[in-house]
């Protein structure tokens, strides 16, 4: 699957179905041009959102925001990238079970179930095209087996030649690359004592939240399929309340421990988010 995804020229239309009944249709093109991977993901409804990747440069064109580029080897869109590019990385966290064959989007498909090893994350049902190994359908299910977020491919074309769309891209005219002002990770006076199996820290920094402008300590955890953000913020004791909510397939959970407000955001069950938040330990600084 991973090699098919990187080497083939294909054009895929798919629909992302959200738990609240909303859906977003996307067009996804991929090609290898002069040995360089090019990729285009386009939201088809509304004002649109275009993401173009040429090699390791990803450019985002969105309404209300000036176009920008970042250095990345994958588009972070509605599809879990690591699952398709480096499925080996997921073996730490998930079990893959081959279920059987069925028919999806008019093609014969191989169904695979993906279950987290410690049942602390949502499960997936994945259907891959028998011929090309490309994605046909991906369901994210909660622990009761009810679908949360679904990706359904509606058409899939594998072509010998790159789509002519890519000939029109002028590489020199891509927006400027954002340079992240890298700050050395500050070891905060706190630590996380529990994480689900296979989940590791992938980022840590301090930054200001958009809109509110509050400074937060930030850590991102990832198991390859889902990314979880952990925010820590100093607050007046008793000034915020504990609680959680669901936003689409995302869970946002906020918890106050002493002078620390801990917030967990990610596509994971609220119980797991709660366990992570509760495991955060404040380390007294010897002063």
């Amino acid at each position: 699957m991973a090699s098919a995804l990187k080497q083939l020229n294909y054009q895929v239309s798919f629909v992302l179905v959200q738990p609240n009944g909303g859906f977003e249709p996307y067009l996804w093109r991929h090609a290898v041009q002069n040995g360089i991977e090019v990729e285009h993901l386009s939201l088809q409804n509304g004002p649109g959102r275009e993401i173009v990747r040429i090699g390791d440069l990803v450019s985002y064109f969105e309404p209300n925001v000036p176009a920008y580029s970042i250095r990345s080897t994958s588009i972070n869109g509605p599809l879990p990238v690591t699952l398709f590019r480096q499925p080996k990385l997921l073996e730490e966290s998930y079990d893959f079970v081959v279920v059987g064959r069925s028919r999806v989007a008019g093609r014969s498909a191989q169904q695979i179930r993906i279950i987290s090893k410690d049942r602390s994350r949502y499960g997936y049902n994945l259907w891959l095209d028998q011929d090309s190994g490309l994605l046909l359908k991906l369901d994210m299910m909660n622990l009761q087996g009810e679908p949360l977020e679904q990706v359904q491919v509606t058409s899939l074309h594998v072509t010998p030649e790159p789509d002519e769309y890519f000939l029109r891209i002028e590489e020199d005219k891509m927006p400027e690359t954002l340079h992240l002002n890298e700050t050395d990770p500050v070891p905060g006076n706190w630590k996380v004592n529990w994480l689900p199996v296979g989940m590791v820290e992938v980022r840590r920094d301090m930054h200001r939240l958009p809109m509110t402008g509050q400074m937060v300590d930030y850590v991102m955890f990832s198991d390859g399929l889902i990314d979880v953000s952990l925010y820590l913020q100093a607050v007046q004791p008793g000034s915020s309340e504990n609680g959680w909510l669901k936003y689409g397939a995302n869970t946002l959970l906020s918890l106050q421990k002493g002078a620390l407000e801990i917030t967990v955001v990610g596509k994971l069950p609220p119980q797991t988010a709660n366990a992570i938040a509760n495991s955060v330990q404040y380390i007294e600084t010897p002063q």
Binding site: V58, Y60, I70, R71, S72, T73, S74, I75, N76, V81, L180, V202, R203, H207, L209, P210, Y218, M220, S222, D227, S229, Y231, N250, V265, G266
Partner: peptide, 11 residues
Amino acid sequence: DHERQMRLKAS
């Protein structure tokens, strides 16, 4: 911010 960080993570 979570959305934004997920994008930046890739880089």
